[in-house]
Design a protein around this nucleic acid. Structure first.
Lengths: 187, 187
DNA sequence: GTCTATATTACGATAGAC
DNA sequence: GTCTATCGTAATATAGAC
């Protein structure tokens, strides 16, 4: 409901109906609307933190580390789509939202460090501002939440038979565009 | 106010205070909250339609036309930032929003045609789905609204003296990343 | 055009029976 | 745990004086 109507426009009445309860019954289980938001966005933030899990003890080049972080971030976004979507739409109106945005800023700063490192190592182009590159790069990744709708569980549309899943196709396209752009001729 | 708090969370009281009027006085000038939204998003949509203005009678290659559309779309987004931002956040809750989303879908389809054309002409890589490329490309462009804040009118921070404006830097970075990616070594 | 005052409705949240 | 009924508040919007 938060995604369909937006957090503010979704009423507790809407949420209750969607969960098959009355408003009062729903309040027996949760303290209020804000708690539901917190539960959802913390799930997203915990998953995103996992992107850096084994990154500290990796030994390869800076650009490969950047590529892996890019790949993993996109993967988490796809795997936890509704929760990440909600996170990306926060405006900071309440304390819950401001805390989540603070955690998100911290995550973004860690992403930026990978771009900086690869640039400092001379492994990616350095004719553009690294902060700008970081924002555009992960802006492209985040934009996936604007249109991606996962296939319903039982659907077999043929696109995932022997060609890898839709998720893999998206991750592949993101990495290819990010690293080599549209000009690269590989068809 | 719509941007700061979100359309739903912004009350007519907030809007009235921001405009230096009382709620009643504000209602003397506008029919309600929805009209204000319509005025704002139509401004964005009209500006975006201008992206294709002289495109029909251009004679150069498909990839150059795509690059120009990319450049212009980013330019419009920067020039009309608050209105485009609002447009990109619509959820489709009301009739006004649904009409705006319909116009936006039409705009997106026209963008996609430029990517398709360049790919069909063999001028950009064709190893990725053109619709996916379009979404990621213009997702990157649209993501600018998430962080860009124009400089206050009188500010002279030195970055726009002899180096082009901040807007130009962003458009440049978008086009460079889109066409050549991070690997391109130009420093 | 702007104001004070108010109608009306919907929302988040609670009381208390079962 | 779930319900009906309701409280208090804040929202959109209007009436009518100046």
């Amino acid at each position: 409901m938060f995604l369909e109507r937006g957090y503010d426009a979704a009423s507790m009445e809407d949420l209750a109906r969607a969960s098959g309860l009355t408003k009062s019954s729903l309040y027996h289980h949760v303290s209020g609307k804000e708690q539901l938001l917190r539960l959802a966005v913390n799930r997203a933030l915990d998953a995103l933190d996992g992107v850096f899990a084994q990154e500290a003890r990796q030994e390869d080049s800076a650009v490969h580390r950047l590529e892996r972080v890019l790949r993993r971030t996109t993967g988490v976004l796809l795997a936890e789509l509704p929760y990440v979507t909600l996170l990306l739409r926060l405006r900071g109106n309440t304390e819950v939202e401001r805390e989540a945005l603070e955690r998100r800023r911290s995550f973004d700063a860690r992403l930026a460090a990978f771009v900086q490192d690869a640039m400092a190592a001379g492994e990616i182009r350095s004719d553009v501002d690294p902060r700008l590159v970081t924002r555009l790069l992960f802006g492209m990744v985040n934009s996936v939440v604007e249109w991606y709708r996962p296939a319903p569980p039982g659907a077999t549309d043929g696109t995932d038979v022997g060609h890898g899943s839709r998720d893999d196709e998206i991750v592949h396209a993101v990495v290819e565009l990010a690293l080599d752009g549209l000009h690269a001729q590989r068809d």
